[in-house]
Amino acid sequence: MKKEAMLDSYMTYIQLEKNYSAHTVSNYRKDLESFFSFLESEGLSEIREVEYLHARNYVTQLYEQAFSRATVSRKISAVRSFFKYGSREFGLNEEAFKSLHHPKKRERLPQFFYEQELEMLFESVSGNDKLSQRNLALLELLYATGMRVSECTSIRIGDLDRAMNIVKVLGKGKKERYIPYGEFAREALEHYIEEARPKLMKNTDHVYLFVNSRGEPLTDRGIRYILSDCIKKAALNTAIYPHMIRHTFATHMLNNGADMRTVQELLGHAHLSSTQVYTHVTKEHLRSTYLNAHPRA
């Protein structure tokens, strides 16, 4: 089988079975196509002939091209994951990249909103028009649940248990989980579903919860645009990305006494280590508050 066919098979696997986001799938394809181009420049036409030396040369070239450690790490992950899949499906030898040193990414604490900033963000979407009602429901649900944006865009009306205030989401690896949401989110959702959504739907007919101004299902890009617009209206001097709401949810939960396992389950993290990064955020918050408040700090 040619490497192009192997690539197509792998892309289908990570998209359908691993449930990777469209953004991740696109990046992995570009990374692997770039790696294939490197092999051709090395005069290697057969992917089964890849050895450790080729892997080392590839990484050296990435650093020579001045990619960041995070980007190099992602590119190695893409190729390593491809070879792992290929060893199982096509008999490829995965040892070349399996034994390769994986550069550690510089740890950065997740950015989050303080509660006062979040209130300003909510105030920016107050209004009785249909788009304001949708934006408030979207913002309230994201903050109430900490769900990923990709999970939010796939929610259907039937995924909401409006009597129990619980939403079913489809996470990574197609794993379902149920997340409760509070009274603020419930009220915003009810207004949106009963009043705003029917007006936005116009002549369209589908079951997705959040829709754009034309009544079509809201996309990841659409949510980014909405949140950026909220930041401008709130006059907050910060950039925003959708995951910031998720970081804010986790940080506020831990700051207010939630235990780590509960937050892990709500976020849909497979490993506790993914959730533990937020303990560093809360410790830094405590330290900063102490230094600013204690007279002899």
Rank of each mutant, 00 (worst) to 15 (best):
S45D: 11
E40H: 09
A66D: 13
L53P: 01
T71G: 00
E64M: 08
F97L: 09
S41N: 11
L44A: 09
F83A: 03
R74L: 03
A78F: 04
R56F: 07
L53K: 12
E89T: 08
E51G: 10
K75E: 04
L109T: 11
E33L: 14
F67L: 15
Y63I: 12
G91W: 04
L62E: 01
A78D: 00
F36K: 00
L109D: 07
K84A: 02
G91F: 03
S99M: 13
S77A: 13
E89Q: 11
A70T: 14
K104T: 08
S41G: 11
R88P: 00
I76L: 15
I76Y: 08
E107W: 04
L62V: 09
R69P: 04
P103I: 10
L118W: 05
E46Q: 10
K98A: 15
H54R: 05
P103D: 08
T60K: 09
Y52K: 12
S68L: 09
Y58E: 00
S73N: 12
S73C: 09
L44T: 13
L92I: 01
S99E: 14
I76M: 07
G43M: 08
I47H: 01
K105L: 07
K30N: 11
E119A: 11
E117N: 08
Y85P: 01
S37D: 13
A66H: 13
A70N: 09
L44P: 04
Q61I: 03
V50N: 00
E94R: 08
L100A: 05
G86E: 01
R88V: 06
R29Q: 14
R74M: 02
F97R: 00
L92W: 03
T71N: 00
L100D: 04
V59Q: 05
K30H: 12
Y63E: 09
R74C: 02
K30I: 14
R88K: 15
S87M: 14
A70S: 14
V50I: 12
R80H: 10
K105G: 07
T60A: 12
K104P: 03
E46N: 15
Y114C: 06
F38Q: 03
V50L: 08
E119C: 04
S41F: 05
E115H: 09
L39V: 09
L100V: 07
Q116I: 06
E119I: 12
L100S: 06
H102I: 11
E49G: 10
V59G: 02
S68D: 15
G43C: 07
L100E: 07
T60F: 10
Q116G: 05
K84W: 06
Q111S: 15
K30G: 00
R88G: 06
